[in-house]
Design a protein around this nucleic acid. Structure first.
Lengths: 198, 198
DNA sequence: CGCACCATTCAACACATGCTGAATTCAACG
DNA sequence: CGTTGAATTCAGCATGTGTTGAATGGTGCG
């Protein structure tokens, strides 16, 4: 019945990083409210209080977790130089790169949390910031701009839903370039194609 | 400081219906875990215990709340008789009718709850039951059937996200027929259009 | 009226949660 | 070696949760 030792552990420790890793995984999986500090501590093999010690509170941990290692404006820069007819392909490619890449857990966690609560305002600004501001500049002057952006949001958020949240096959496991080939034509129509008049 | 009276209220009561109405609203807004029984009771102007009295427990209330007044197979029946080139229009029309109609709160509550938790299995079966089974029959024999269904799911779930969850304008407030006009061509391509080969 | 039944509230339990303060153990440096 | 400080755990508090059992006030029937 020897209780686990208290006090500092000998040798170098990775506790802080362990906490962050567990938090990223669990937040991405169940959203902010779906995970307890105790669950994270358990997964990281650490006492709960250590979390507060390092990150003050749950919100602090979440912020540290989802600190985006990606600057949206930077990622979407290729859009500026792409010709009009390649807009969809370029956007989709860059987009999937982020969502399939190493920061995907962070982005997914944010996405899930944004849509889980009734925080539609938060969700809107999330989408806006991540994609729309750049796109809006790029397409400035187009007719029906807001409408086209909305339609595009429809197709893009749907990809995330099916591929990352619902995880429906064969979309979920499909290589990104193949997905781009399949969807780009439709997205492109939302950008530059003809739309039925009201 | 007279505490509110205990015991039965005089006259006919609508408490049960009030609870259901509040529950529908709040569940649709914040998902299953985002709402407490006390919040529902408060909104309905009723004591918490009354909920357990009528619905046994929270799960029971949720089930009573989201009991679909709509049989998916029934709603999607028009699909069977529609010509191939009208599939997308027909599906979208029926689909938006459900999601804009009186049962929208129930369906949204289910949707939100399904995606909020890590219950991707639940979410998948939700989508499957609600749409795919009928569609799969209708399109039986098509090439790349599962792929086309997945792509369609992409576009359809995206509509829900933008219109109902994120509530992004102008999509959110747009009349359904207009939205059908705008999106049907893209959805139709996923059903019967040419797809780039792998 | 008397009695059974229902609607409703009160009070409380058991539990999980986020968070805090003190205690213990180690490392680093003089 | 002694001291300082950081890492880590322990125990606990305050609050919110779902749920339960008993009490109270009304309705309707014989």
């Amino acid at each position: 019945m020897t209780p686990r030792a208290s006090g500092r552990r000998p040798g170098g420790s990775s506790a802080r990083e362990d906490i962050l890793a567990s938090a990223r995984k669990l937040f991405a999986d169940k959203g902010f409210d779906g995970v307890s500090l105790r669950a994270i501590a358990g997964d990281a093999g650490v006492d709960v209080a250590l979390i507060s010690h390092y990150f003050d509170n749950k919100r602090g941990l979440f912020l540290a977790t989802v600190a985006l290692p990606v600057d949206p404006a930077e990622v979407l820069k290729p859009l500026a130089g792409a010709p009009d007819e390649d807009l969809a392909r370029t956007l989709l490619t860059q987009f999937l790169e982020v969502w399939d890449g190493p920061s995907s857990e962070a982005v997914l966690a944010t996405f899930r949390t944004a849509i889980a609560g009734g925080e539609s305002e938060l969700a809107r600004s999330f989408v806006s910031t991540l994609v729309f501001d750049v796109l809006r500049d790029r397409l400035a002057g187009a007719d029906d701009l807001e409408l086209r952006l909305g339609l595009a949001a429809t197709q893009i958020s749907g990809i995330i839903m099916v591929r990352k949240v619902i995880r429906l096959e064969p979309i979920a496991s499909m290589p990104a370039p193949r997905l781009v080939d399949l969807i780009a034509p439709n997205l492109q129509r939302y950008f530059t194609g003809p739309l039925p008049r009201a």
